[in-house]
């Protein structure tokens, strides 16, 4: 009980402190899409053009309905993993999570934070991307990629340089769909996925990833927040 009280008090004190934004420039929905001119091959340009309208709608839904998240400018599109030997293209989205300093989050080890953030935000974003069936059905799309960045606890204190932790995950379409339909267990999903953790600029590499059910991202509502008229939030 005293722990809960102290955590609540800590939260209130933190609310009084200056809010630290995690480094993502603010991107309106149209800025979230990777510009067509940045693609280098005909296949990539063709994919981007074919699905532009759908991805714009998707970006708008995130912008309007999930205001605690932000898509990095130009980071919603079709990408290849850096270590990919072939030329597989993934529908990819890089999200910044507005996670402020929090005592219980800071108490977790780095690998636990990764599991927590992926379970809370990564799985739900995969689910939302998987619902773009017209995009996923495109034979040029090999899989899904979610990149999550959040403020590393303790680095936003005065006099320190704020640092983001980033998890970049790539998974093939079949595994993603089977995992979301609960036909593939979380540990199997993790073992089939390609992922890397970055601590600021430093590559930490693959860490143990535990994935569990967390409905926060699909149920949370910002107090008094009103989505723009016409926004369809589910």
């Amino acid at each position: 009980m005293s722990r809960l009280r102290s955590t609540v008090l800590g939260g209130l004190l933190l609310a009084a402190a200056p809010v630290i934004s995690g480094g993502a420039a603010l991107a309106a929905p149209e800025d979230a899409l990777r510009p067509v001119e940045k693609y280098t091959t005909v296949r990539e340009k063709s994919l981007a053009s074919a699905h532009r309208t759908r991805l714009l709608q998707f970006a708008a839904q995130i912008y309007n309905c999930l205001p605690w998240l932000a898509v990095y400018p130009g980071e919603l599109g079709f990408r290849q993993a850096r270590d990919n030997q072939g030329n597989d293209l993934y529908l990819s989205m890089w999200i910044w999570v507005d996670q402020r300093e929090d005592a219980s989050f800071a108490a977790l080890s780095q690998q636990r934070r990764v599991s927590a953030m992926f379970s809370r935000y990564g799985v739900d974003m995969l689910r939302r991307m998987a619902e773009l069936s017209d995009v996923l059905d495109d034979r040029n799309v090999a899989g899904l990629s979610v990149v999550l960045s959040w403020l590393k606890p303790g680095t936003s204190r005065p006099g320190r340089q704020a640092v983001n932790e980033t998890l970049a995950l790539f998974v093939d379409k079949a595994t993603a769909m089977d995992f979301l339909a609960k036909r593939v267990a979380p540990d199997e999903f993790a073992s089939r996925s390609q992922f890397t953790l970055f601590d600021g600029l430093d590559a930490v590499g693959r860490v143990p990833l535990e994935v569990w059910e967390d409905s926060f991202n699909s149920t949370y509502k910002v107090n008094s927040y009103e989505p723009p008229k016409g926004a369809q939030c589910q």
């Binding site: 980071e75 340089q161 970055f198 600029l201």
Partner: peptide, 24 residues
């Protein structure tokens, strides 16, 4: 929300670059 984030913005957090994650 956008305005509040900008008003309270005081520094850029160090973040991995896209080139470290993606090929293209």
């Amino acid at each position: 929300i956008d305005s509040a984030r900008q008003e309270n913005w005081w520094g850029k957090a160090i973040t991995v670059s896209p080139e470290q994650i993606f090929q293209n």
